[in-house]
Amino acid sequence: MKRIVFSFAIGLVFGIGILVSGMANPAKILNFFDIAGTWDPSLAFVMGGALIVTAIGFRLVLSRSHPLLAGGFSLPTRHDIDVRLLGGAAVFGVGWGIAGFCPGGAVPALGLGRSEPVIFVTALIAGMMLVKLIDAARLRAAKPAG
């Protein structure tokens, strides 16, 4: 129960940060990338602010033996840069450039009571499910028959 309460409160802070920063506003996102047009450099300040805090904060936190409410830190262990990673990141960028929403920007926008974030998140979930289905089918095909 403690984990749920902390997670909700931290998600709330995260969401307020997203909204205040402009990351939930597609017009601002698209203008950040439109250097040749109506450039709005604000999002560099979002990334800068977040990175300064996490770079210092993670160092302090990860020097402890374990987190407050869990047995250990769950960190990614892979180090290889493969086609799947770069191809996925490239496709994500194309989608972000078309829609103007990224997942972290769209979730708090769901609470604004507008239709666009709902449409985007529904399509986002459909895209994720599609990959899960493809991966499951591949796994079945890879298993020996019988």
Binding site: I10, V13, S21, D40, V46, G49
Partner: peptide, 30 residues
């Protein structure tokens, strides 16, 4: 056109960073 908002964006970014650090400190998650 959107308005350039360095102070709000920096403030929001700091909150995003703080939340990320808090999640790591409590649940140990990214």
């Amino acid at each position: 056109m959107t308005e350039f908002t360095p102070v709000l964006s920096l403030t929001g970014g700091i909150l995003i960073g703080l939340a990320s650090v808090m999640l790591m400190a409590t649940l140990g998650r990214i």
